[in-house]
Write a protein that binds this DNA or RNA. Structure first.
Length: 914
RNA sequence: GGGCGCAUAGCUCAGCUGGGAGAGCGCCUGCCUUACAAGCAGGAUGUCGGAGGUUCAAGUCCUUCUGCGCCCACCA
């Protein structure tokens, strides 16, 4: 039999994990007959080092997967990584810059080689880090968004959507970084509050001597103005609408003065200059009024030929010069300081310039409908309504999705341009233009938005577009676990992609969890340097501690602070569990058996159910009943994704009920026959002598206790396994060995289940009474400051025969737990000795010997009485309330009445005793 | 500007569909009781952010205010 060290060794984790992996326990079989349960991992970027967010996110997933696996599901946790187009590209560019190399020097091919090298080097890092947390992904299936199969899925989707007319090329304003020479997504724009100037100018109104004045923070954009707008119905300008304003540059072109809802008449002068090519709002106005779009900038931010005399200046230079010129022409009004937020590129800080570009777009309106329907029909559920709101809000205001990125790292857009201006879109590079047959084709240089491939993740990883057994078995997946931050970037896109290409919502439940914050409640970020490295925590405490700490004591849907001090109580609990198991093993049947003795009665069965399953001892019935209840509740909480509560149920059960009470109660039974093991005799001999008979009965009682403690502890360990996989593995196996059995792994053991026959509310109630009495005695001891070494005498006057019997049976245990030298149980209704001082605790009256100080006891009784009187008064008030009687549920009223009766009975007892 | 979240014991947080305020840590007292001092036993601690309202009953529902935080859109 294995002996356990005195404390759990966190360094065992590596070894345990290696064994699991080698044994293939994480593997999911697409051909099995078991029902599937699937989770796809939110693929970490290959740029990423494991951070606390990953730890929390994946702990949640692992808990669900391990739970379902034990429940008998074919559980697949699909892992992989994301190429993270721009994020990785920027990182590699930086790394190269350190060596003095630019991506242009390397050329596209050479640069991509570097990126694949990067992926080779760092892509696997995060995976191995995830393993150190014990995550049971099916690693053999690990995919990468840019591997062959997934790339094929990406091209397939692009071509299909293009052929359906859902992908188009159009001129749109994109966030453009003039430094990086690329468009960037809204998500990559960081807004910073800064002090700036707002410039007031005026344009002459053509054909009048009037002027119309307006304000702008970007004077250079006047070069691209194609209208001046006022609010419809703004009386100040009513006469001007329809007239023209003169832009005082070049040949002084005239632009229309229009009325548009976009203008807020309250703001500034109530006039807005419209530059459709350089402002998103103006762009929209331009579309409504059919205005021309004048692009005035080159890609590097230098004014182009449309800027006339200003061509060649940078945007900053042009701003200065234009302001000067306006002053000279008397069209300058004033400048004012303005605090406003300006968008910058999150990678390089350069101020984002809205620029018109030919970009590829996905038409969203039609695609969004099934995604909206998925939620409305209930096919897709969110763990909290408020997250569904975010999802729906985004979908209801959906805009076309710009999918082209001016990068090299990513899936290159499969569009080939011919001299004839025709675009051939094809998965494989075509030999010739499909229209004119021209051979001179060039592929679009851009790559796709990184979310384009992530959108397909739930089915591309399972082999789509091939019809694979995996796809058949594991799609749709069961739950998606992710952070609030990517509901629209990712969740929305997966849903409409799944609907579109699989005809099914990719997952049934969306589990959005909060962010892990630092100790002061700030977001962990690189720039603040306040991140806490999960690997460091694992190093110090072990993965089990980190995992359990992350999910307990929080509702998970809100942000949570990461407090180091919360790790210790968690570690302490695992240590408690470890030692409880040591205790159970030390008191295993074999542990005291002499060599050569029969082991027939030794090994407890796996199931707590034995042939004669009715527990004889009330405490066994109690703990089994409680264990059954905790199993049911934990299972329910796991099913409803209330992981913190599930964990709490098990932890409390193990610590408060199993360790603090059950183990203490059965100690006398375990020890009673400890020294009598050697002279075990034949059944006949046992029966022949009363002494032997008693000994035999005690032995049987000990065996029942052993059986029960093994069964209950093992069940609890299994319930805890999804949360703390490592320690439970060692303990489960050790428990089995202590019973002379072999256990392969807890991972694949059956999830605990207890039949109704274990339900025993009566036993639960009775043990509650025993606990109350023991607590009462302890409290009095403390109050009297009786040293633990000093044993006292206790008399218990039970309220009835049944309770009396229980106390009689548990006399030794009560004595031990209460530090009594002797516990005498009186017959119900008996008269206690006159010199005994009594204390009423719940359902029994306790009498102490002379140690009890009558005066203090009287004070205590008075306090107790006051409390009871208050309770009774409260209930009386309630019962006197007609509204309560009329409208409250009958069961509640009855309960109150019953309580009143109990309290007054207790009060009467106190009064009778004093 | 729009949307959302949080405010409960000194600290960090649980409290689901409204029916007698909870946990852990910390604190006080006593214990190295042969599984565990990372432990055991006992104890103190809250006008549940303020103000209204609905209800027989509100930490829980509604309105409003205050203080933090997040997301989206950003205003010429």
């Amino acid at each position: 039999m294995r002996t356990l060290q005195t404390t759990y060794d966190k360094n065992r984790e590596k070894e345990i994990y290696a064994r699991w992996e080698a044994a293939g326990y994480f593997r999911a079989d697409a051909t099995s007959g078991k029902p599937p349960y699937t989770i796809v991992i939110p693929p970490p970027n290959i740029t990423a080092k494991l951070h606390m967010g990953h730890a929390l996110n994946n702990t949640i997933q692992d808990i669900l997967i391990r739970f379902k696996r034990m429940q008998g599901f074919e559980a697949l946790w699909m892992p992989g990584t994301d190429h993270a187009a721009i994020a990785t590209e920027v990182l590699v560019i930086k790394a190269l810059a350190a060596q003095g190399i630019t991506k242009e020097q390397l050329g596209r091919e050479g640069f991509l080689e570097k990126l694949w090298e990067w992926n080779e080097l760092y892509g696997g890092t995060i995976i191995s880090q995830l393993k150190s947390l014990g995550f049971s992904c099916d690693w053999e299936r690990t995919r990468f968004t840019m591997d062959e199969g997934l790339s094929d899925a990406v091209l397939e989707v692009f071509v299909r959507l293009y052929n359906e007319g859902k992908i188009y090329r159009g001129e749109r304003l994109v966030n453009w970084c003039v430094k990086c020479g690329t468009s960037i997504s809204d998500a990559e724009v960081e807004h910073d509050e800064r002090e700036d100037l707002i410039y007031h100018f005026k344009y002459a109104v053509a054909g009048t001597d009037e002027f119309i004045s307006f304000a702008t923070t970007r004077p250079e954009t006047m070069l691209g103005d194609t209208a001046v707008a006022v609010a419809p119905g703004d009386e100040r300008y009513a006469g001007l609408v329809g007239k023209f304003a003169r832009v005082p540059f070049g040949d002084g072109r005239e632009i229309p003065i229009i009325a548009d809802e976009y203008v807020d008449p309250e703001f500034g002068t109530g006039v807005v200059k419209i530059t459709p090519a350089h402002d998103p709002n103006d762009f929209e106005v331009g579309v409504r009024h059919n205005l021309p779009r004048i692009n005035i900038l080159h890609d590097d931010g230098v004014v182009n030929e449309n800027g006339g005399e200003y061509a060649g200046l940078t945007r900053e230079e042009a701003r200065k010069k234009i302001t000067e010129d306006m002053k000279q022409r008397g069209l300058f009004v004033k400048t004012e300081p303005l605090k406003h937020s300006v968008g910058g590129h999150d990678r390089c800080g350069t101020i984002v310039e809205p620029l018109m570009k030919l970009q590829w777009f996905v038409k969203m309106e039609e695609l969004a409908k099934p995604a909206i329907d998925a939620y409305e029909s209930g096919k897709l559920k969110f763990n909290r309504e408020r997250f569904a709101k975010i999802y729906m809000n985004w979908l209801n205001n959906i805009r076309d999705w710009c999918i082209s990125r001016q990068l090299w790292w990513g899936h290159r857009i499969p569009a080939y341009y011919c001299d004839c201006a025709h675009i051939t879109v094809s998965k494989i590079a075509p030999d010739a233009c499909e229209k004119c047959g021209g051979k001179n084709l060039t592929q679009d240089p851009d790559v796709l938005d990184t979310w384009f491939s992530s959108a397909l993740w739930p089915f591309s990883t399972l082999g789509w577009p091939e019809k694979t057994p995996e796809l058949e078995k594991f799609y749709p997946t069961d739950v998606l676990v992710t952070d609030r931050g990517i509901i629209f970037n990712w969740v929305v896109r997966m849903v409409f992609s799944g609907e579109k290409f699989m005809g099914e919502t990719p997952f049934k439940d969306v589990f959005i969890h909060g962010t892990v914050l630092d100790e002061q409640g700030r977001k962990m970020s690189k720039s603040l340097g306040n991140g806490i490295d999960p690997l460091e925590i694992i190093e110090e405490f072990g993965a089990d501690v980190l995992r359990l700490m992350l999910v307990s004591g929080t509702a998970l849907d809100n942000d949570m602070r990461f407090l180091r001090e919360r790790l210790e109580p968690t570690r302490n609990f695992l240590n408690k569990l470890w030692n409880a198991t040591r205790f159970v093993i030390m008191n295993a049947p074999g542990a005291q058996r002499m060599p050569g003795a029969s082991d027939e009665s030794g090994a407890a069965s796996e199931s707590p159910v034995s042939e004669n399953s009715a527990a004889v001892e009330i405490e066994d019935a109690w703990i089994l009943s409680r264990c059954r209840q905790v199993t049911i509740e934990t299972t329910e909480k796991l099913e409803s994704h209330e992981l913190g509560h599930a964990a709490q149920k098990v932890v409390d059960f193990i610590w408060d009920e199993f360790c603090d009470w059950y183990v203490e109660i059965i100690k006398p039974r375990l020890y009673a026959t400890r020294n009598a093991q050697g002279d075990r005799q034949s059944a006949e001999a046992q029966a022949s002598s009363p002494v032997q008979e008693a000994k035999h009965a005690a032995e049987l009682s000990r065996e029942r206790a052993q059986k029960t403690m093994f069964a209950v502890l093992n069940a609890a360990i299994k319930l805890l396994h999804p949360f703390t996989p490592f320690i439970t593995e060692d303990l489960h196996i050790a428990l089995a060995e202590a019973q002379g059995k072999r256990a392969e792994t807890v991972m694949l053991s059956d999830w605990p289940a207890f039949g109704d026959e274990f339900n025993n509310p009566a036993a639960e109630k009775q043990i509650e009474r025993v606990k109350e009495v023991v607590r009462g005695i302890r409290a009095v001891r403390t109050e009297k400051q009786v040293p633990p070494s000093q044993k006292i005498g206790v008399l218990i006057l039970p309220e009835n025969n049944e309770t009396g019997e229980i106390f009689e049976n548990l006399r030794a245990a009560v004595a031990q737990m209460a530090g009594a030298k002797e516990v005498l149980i009186l017959a119900p209704g008996a008269t206690p000795p006159e010199n005994a001082v009594s204390l009423v605790v719940a359902r029994a009256t306790i009498y102490f010997d002379s140690l009890v100080d009558a005066e203090k006891e009287a004070a205590r009784v008075a306090k107790e009485r006051k409390k009871l009187e208050q309770e009774i008064a409260r209930i009386d008030a309630k019962l006197a309330n007609e509204g309560f009687l009329a409208k409250a549920p009958a069961a509640l009223v009855d309960a109150e009445r019953q309580k009143r009766e109990e309290f007054s009975a207790m009060l009467a007892k106190i009064e009778g005793a004093s």
